[in-house]
Amino acid sequence: MMQVVYEKTKGLTDKQTHYCPGCTHGVIHKLVGEVLVELGVLGKTVGVAPVGCSVLAYDYFNCDMHEAAHGRAPAVATGIKRVLPDHTVFTYQGDGDLASIGTAEIIHAAHRGEKFTTIFVNNAIYGMTGGQMAPTTLIGQKATTSPYGRDQATTGMPLKVSEMLATIDGAAFVERVSVHDVPNIRKAKKAIKKAFQVQIEGTGFGIVEILSTCPTNWGITPVDSLTWLKENMIPYYPLGNFRTPEEVK
């Protein structure tokens, strides 16, 4: 007798995504949707979408959603969580949204220990606007606004968000994961589930930084993007847990 072991999660709507072929935003959406269903909180979840490639995420998550101004999702989530403390609240943000215009908001949400969960997708580039350099763009990496390769002398070193937020006590859970292969996707899902559990148990703010691909703006095929991520991003952005409350460890 055959049993279904993998199917599309109820945590996502039927709307097909606009993401480019092979963009792992789609994988991350599935993980978040699956976790919300498995934790049994989908009906009491409110998500906040950013501005960037995942701006349309409010059409993809099968729960109440807000579309926030660029960088402001953590502030919007703060407002929601303070009004609905027993609901599950998350923000889904890219590196332009969180690590550039929204750094004050994410740092202060962690600083206040706001009890929501942030899914931070780091693909080292601005996707939606056509491939500009992001604070997470690697040294030497070409982008439309670092056409000769990112130069540390004029643009500084890529920002390590997880390490930065791990210095803040209010950040109860900080982990960096990747989705460049199946084992790592499964590990990423575990981390996402832990981050949401930290919220549900009321311990504090949780963030999962997820290294992700951008085939279109990296200018390589989706399959090669997985390799590029592994060989270039992981050395600079080491995977692992940076902060976890004792009880969730």
């Binding site: 049993q3 279904v4 072991v5 199917e7 996502l12 789609g26 996707i185």
Partner: peptide, 21 residues
Amino acid sequence: IGCANCATICPDSVITVEREK
């Protein structure tokens, strides 16, 4: 063998997997 690797990495939930129980 119904390992679901293909479905797991698919960004668009194209694949449904069954396995013999």
